[in-house]
Design a protein around this nucleic acid. Structure first.
Length: 118
RNA sequence: GGAGCAGACCAAACGAUCGCCAGGCCAUUAACCGUAUUACGGUUUUAGGCCGGGAGGAAAGUCCGAACACCGCAGGGCAAGGCGCUCCGUAAUACGGAGUCGCGGCAACGUGAAGGAAAGUGCAACAGAAAGGAAACCGCCCGGCACUCAAUUUCUGCGCAACUCUCUUGACGCGCUUAAAUAUCAGUUGGGCAGAAAUUGAGUGCCGGGUAAGGGUGAAACGGUGUGGUAAGAGCGCACCAGUUCUCCGGGUGACCGGGGAAGCUAUGUAAACCCCGCCUGGUGCAAGACCAAAUAGGGGAGCGCUUGAGGACGGCCCGUCCAAGCUCCCGGGUAGGUCGCUUGAGAUGCUGGGUAACCAGCAUCCCAGAUGAAUGAUCGUUAUCCGGUUUUGGGUAACUGAGACCGAACACAGAAUUCGGCUUAUUGUCUGCUCGGACC
RNA sequence: GGGCCGUUAGCUCAGCUAGGCAGAGCACCUGACUCUUAAUCAGAUGGUCCAAGGUUCGAUUCCUUGACGGCCCA
């Protein structure tokens, strides 16, 4: 298994999964993103992305999603434990640059990792 | 070089590393099923390798038109909605091409929902006399009546001036002032004043009639200019111009254009107001629709059972104890979820031919995204483009301009969602052709 | 993806059908009443009628295009 792969098994795609995370999960925020996370059922950490129409038009939303995926792809090996994480973009993310989003997401992932007890 | 008009094209390129999506081939983990059972095949699933492919000119807005799917439908009409110069193109259109006419622009050119206002109804605020098949407020003209004014003529009275006359500078005084008398108490001419009458003219008011030339209005005022004409005027007549209807000739497939004649003087604007005429339209939309199908609840059927105990709990099983009226199976609808629809098509590219063009025909070659919490990316490097600044240098008197180096910054609008054909809107840059009036040499 | 509706004063809405003056309530401001405030009464201010273009003498109103906001459909 390649180190930096990121397939559909690493992602949250079902509507029921999103509902379960938002009901049971905990929240983290900074200026660009809100993270909702809970312990995962599977043996790997999975990522879900939510970008609403408030954030921008379709091109802007696609760009934000790609940057989030790219950051998770490079960072997920460092995250201990198995989590289901939903990243929700805020309106401020429309104007943010790639470096700003990367540092913001890295901070969020480190905070989630700190919650890992076992 | 400036201002502007039209058209076409592009949507930075290459490389490295790490990745994403669907497909094909290879290959692998696990589970299940089948058979001719240490094997082979199938389905689902796990990790991976190779191959070639992977956003747009607007993918956008959803403003039109279709394909396709389901529902509805004997046929016809009404209603409702849409469209509206002509011809052509097209599967079709509210689209495109070529034209006609109107409008805008010096021009290149642009632009127009451009049928009918002499079928009918409505509306036209304010202002203005009047806002629509004309009427008549002012005005102009004619006639009558009343009043006022002016001029002329005649008559009467009273002064004045000049001349003549005279015994008297015709004064003063007295008397009279009804008539008359007294008396020298004049005469002629000129002009003035007052009164009366007549005539003429003017003005004011009222009444009756004619007229629409003119009237600080208005977006728009019932053809325009000139001339004759008339009481005053008027298409009332005439000339020219503009417009309407009818008609003839010629050109054009046609919208329409050119020329001639007649009538009649006129007919406002608005139909993106109602409306009339002609033509078109069944509805809903891939979240259409077809198929597979958990869990829970409910429906139908069959079997077993209701104290002679089905079934459940305790338990590995039997016995036993307790609870107990329902339990099991099948069927169909159908939700979550999934599969199909789903990309070979009014297809793309090239050549040839037809046509002014839109477009069409023939031949050859090619297969070119199919995702569904939704795939095309991230980082780095090099080069190119554009912008700003600094600077070197060539041309030119100058305005200006060509080439190069360095630094910085920028690289737009924007992401397929059943598929096509258009329209509209957003937006970067390049090129070509054309128009206009200037400056410099 | 598809369908439907709306945008008028600081706020909530009329007016648009049938074109010509832009209005109501609340709020804000001023004055009166009151010892003061509230309530009440009187008065005044306040508008690119979402934007652009067209039809018309004239557009909030009619037409076209766009922007923004909202609702519905599995």
């Amino acid at each position: 298994m390649r180190v930096f792969s990121f397939t559909k098994a690493d992602r949250i795609l079902k509507h029921l999964d999103f509902v379960r995370i938002s009901k049971k999960g905990k929240r983290l925020q900074d200026t660009y993103f809100t993270a909702v996370y809970s312990t995962g059922r599977l043996e790997r950490t999975r990522l879900g992305i939510t970008v609403t129409k408030k954030v921008g038009n379709a091109a802007v939303r696609n760009r934000i999603k790609r940057i989030i995926r790219e950051c998770f792809r490079l960072e997920k090996q460092k995250i201990k434990g198995c989590w289901d994480i939903n990243i929700i973009a805020k309106k401020a993310a429309e104007a943010a640059g790639t470096d700003q989003m990367f540092s913001s997401l890295q901070g969020i992932f480190k905070k989630i990792e700190g919650k890992f007890d076992n």
